[in-house]
Amino acid sequence: MMNYKALALLSTILYAAFPGDAAQAETLRYAIGFPPGGSVTDGLHEFNDRLKAETDLELKIYELSLLDLKETPPGVRDGLADAGYIITPYYAAEYSETNLPANMSMLATVGTPAKSSGAVMAGVMTEYVMLHCDECQQQYKAQNQIFLGAIGTPEYVQLCTTPIRSIEDLKGKKMRSSVDAMGRWAENFGATKVSIPANDIYEAMSQGVVDCTMFSAPELGNFQLFDVTKYITLGLPGGSFAGVGAMNVNLDTWQSLSKEQRSEMLRLAPFNAAAITVNYHRAAEQDIEKARQNGTEIIERPEAMAKATEEFVRDDAAVIKASFQNDYGLENVDEKYDLIAGLIEKWKGLTEDSHNDKDAMTELLWTEVFSKMDAATYGMN
C-alpha cells in the first residue's frame, strides 16, 4: 500500500501539472474561537498552506471573529461556517459519545508514562471516533457535521493566582475545569469546581472569580494568561484536553464537495491534527519558560500528590461509567471504557518516537486511521 508521504508527493506533482486550476480554488469558511498567533491557529495555517498548494480547496480562517468557542458547534451545524474547531464538552449531551474518551484522558498520564499525553489522546480520539464508534458518528450527523480528526493538548497543569504546593493547598480553592473528571479531581481534594468558557478565563482570574484554572501551558499564550498567572504547578491534574473536533465540516458542505475533494481532505486532515498537537507540545515548554522569566513561580508536583492522583484516576473509572450511562444514556459503557483504555495504552507505544515530529505523527494517523476511510461513503449516508 502506498504510504502517506508517497501519496502526498504524487498529489502535489499532479496538481502542479495543472496550475491554471488554482484560480478556481473553492474557499471554505473556518471558524475558531482562538485569537491569532498560537499553537492551534499556527497549525491551522500550516494545514491551509498545504491545502492551497496541493488541492483546489482553501480555508478562510476566522480567528475569534466569526464565532467564539461556544458558538462554533451550532455555527458549523447551521452553516454560518463551513468548518470549525469544535469543543465537544460545551455540549455534553449532544456529543456524549465523544466526550466519554475525552473524559478518560487522565489515563494517559498515569501508569506507563507517555512522552506526550496530547499525542496519545489525538490518536485515541481520532481512531475511536472514526473506526470504532458508530454512535459518535451518528451524533455528529445529528449536528450536521462530519468529523475529520482530533487533537490533544499537553498535560494539564495548574495556572493560579495563589500557590498550590500540597494537597492541603487545594482545599477551598475555586478551580476552573473544562473536563468533568478533572473537576471531580479538584473536588476530591477539597476544591470547588467552576465552569466558565475558555474565552472568559482571563477576566475570571483577574477578578478573583477563580483561584486556578486547570489548563495546558500553551493556553498562557493562546488566551493571554501570562499577566494573571502568578504560580504554575506542573503535573496536576495531568491528562489532556481531547474533546476537540479539529476539522469538523458542515455536512451539507462536505456532501457538496466532489469525491476527489473529499479524498484530499481525508488525506491532509491527519497533518492538521499532527501540526496542532505537535505545536502544542513544543509550546508547553516554551510558555512555561517564558512564564518563569516573567516572574511566575514554577512548582514541581509533590510526590504525594502524584500518588493521590493515581488513586483518584483508578477509583474514578466507576464514576465515569455511571455518569455516561445514567446521565447520557450511553449503552455498553463497560465495553467502551475497556476499548478506550486499551487504545490509550496502544497509542502510548505508537507515539513514543513520533510525538514531537509532525511528519511522523501525520504518517501514524494516516496509516492507523485515515487510510482506512473511503471518500465515496464517509459522511455520505
Rank of each mutant, 00 (worst) to 15 (best):
V209N: 08
I87D: 00
Q286T: 13
R165W: 03
N294W: 00
N48K: 13
Y30T: 01
G238D: 07
T27S: 14
Y90A: 08
T351E: 09
L14V: 04
I276T: 03
I340N: 01
S105N: 12
G43K: 01
K70E: 12
S166R: 02
A108L: 09
R262T: 05
L350I: 10
A318I: 09
N250D: 07
F18H: 15
S323F: 10
I151E: 06
P113T: 11
G295T: 00
K321Y: 00
Y280V: 00
E285W: 00
Q139V: 06
T362K: 03
D49W: 09
P270A: 08
I232L: 05
V120I: 10
A283Q: 11
P36Q: 13
D338R: 15
A274Q: 04
P35E: 08
E289Q: 14
R262K: 10
K358P: 05
E187K: 06
S105L: 06
A23E: 13
D134F: 11
V333W: 03
S39P: 14
V40P: 01
A306Y: 05
G118D: 11
E335S: 12
D357K: 09
A284T: 06
A92R: 15
V40H: 07
L51I: 10
Y91Q: 06
T192M: 12
F226L: 11
D338A: 15
Y231W: 11
Y90S: 04
F34V: 00
S256G: 13
E264N: 15
Q261L: 12
F189Y: 15
F324G: 02
D21K: 14
I86K: 02
L80Q: 13
L365S: 01
I167Y: 01
L266T: 08
G235M: 12
T112H: 12
G75K: 04
A31D: 10
P302H: 09
Q145D: 06
D78E: 15
Q286N: 09
L330A: 06
A284V: 06
M205L: 15
N144H: 15
A122W: 01
L80T: 08
F215R: 07
V76L: 03
D353A: 14
L28I: 09
S323V: 06
L234E: 14
M130W: 03
Y91V: 06
M305T: 02
A283K: 09
L14R: 14
T309C: 06
M265D: 02
E63R: 10
A150W: 01
N294H: 04
L365D: 02
T229Q: 05
E303P: 00
H45P: 09
Y337I: 05
L268Q: 05
Q139L: 05
I164C: 04
G208R: 08
E46P: 04
M380F: 02
P113R: 14
N3P: 10
L220F: 10
P89N: 05
D200K: 10
N188Y: 08
